[in-house]
Computed example of a mutant assay.
Amino acid sequence: MLDLDVEAPSLHNIFYDKVNDEINGVQYGTIEYLYRKVIQGSEDVRINDIFCSLQLKNVSGEIFVMPALKSMNKDYVYQIERLQTQQIQEKDVFREIFAYVQKELNVDIILIDTRAGFNQWGSLSLLTLSNQVIFIAYPNNENVEGLNMALQLMQNIGKKRYAVAMSKVVASEEGVKKTRSLFEGLNVAQEDLIPVYYKQEIALSNRYPIDSVDILVSYKELSDYILNNEKIERNKKLLMNGMKEQMLGQMFIEKQRLVRFLAVEQFLNQEANMFLKYRYREELFGIRNTQIKRRYKKGGMRMFQQLYIQL
């Protein structure tokens, strides 16, 4: 998680204990790193000094945080004033940072928290660094108006991977109905509303992560969208390369309308004894509610477990 909301940074406060840990915390923030690297031309700064692990329990993986700063002071304000995003782009500093964390930390996704509205730092995050943009907005008419302008900009510059999530949605029939009505006023090629429901426990908390299973439900649809979108893009790339005909020829059993997953790990990260039921070939690119049958034996009898997934 990279904090580039430079005018209102928050990750250093949200994860204060981890960021300021004497042994495993950060030495300084991303902005100081960029200032010393770009403005001062220092070669002594190290990328592994600007991130730390959140060391979460009961998580199959690891999450790292890269705060904009370690603590707010006058030096930070001065560094922001001196830094220009054009200089950062010319030096291509973030390419170096991203390459490092991908190689050394084996990260799958980099989440960038950017400034609200359009400014030089917001443009750097939205237009230069990101592969996919998620606009998060409270459901009201003012935000719908502003979002439509932002979405128009995305279309004008040829950005195709973007979506809108409505945050702090009231978890009631009336709340969802109002939010859906506002969502329908957006000029976005997005199939359905992505809601993030309001949780008092989140609003009142001063420290994260919050140790509650119920909290995860609020963000499930948004996280599912991001992960599924990445999977669909990856599938498309695999099928668009020179091996497309060979792959499809091996995988599709047209008469039975089944896909035998010879290379299932590349698509679903599931066991290879699975079959994908499909109606037409294009479903492999990511149609919702795709049916999967898993075969297994129990007590000498061959059983079928049927479940639905989203590619």
Rank of each mutant, 00 (worst) to 15 (best):
L193A: 10
I194F: 03
Q200F: 06
Y198M: 11
N206P: 10
V196A: 05
A203F: 12
I210Q: 01
K199E: 15
A189V: 04
L182K: 07
L204Y: 10
V188R: 02
I202Q: 05
Y198T: 05
N187H: 09
N206Q: 15
N206A: 13
E201P: 00
A189R: 14
E191V: 00
Y197T: 12
Q200Y: 10
Y208W: 15
E184I: 00
D192R: 15
N206V: 13
S205M: 11
P195W: 01
P209R: 01
F183T: 05
E184C: 01
V196G: 06
L182V: 05
V188C: 08
I202D: 01
F183P: 08
P195F: 03
E191R: 06
F183M: 04
G185M: 11
L204R: 14
V196C: 07
V188D: 07
V188M: 09
A189Y: 08
V196T: 08
L204T: 14
Y197N: 07
A203I: 08
Y208V: 06
V196N: 03
S181T: 11
I194W: 03
L186K: 04
V196D: 11
Q200S: 13
S181A: 09
P209I: 06
I202R: 05
L193E: 12
Y197R: 05
L193M: 14
V188Y: 04
R207V: 12
L182D: 02
R207A: 13
P209T: 03
N187Y: 02
L204F: 04
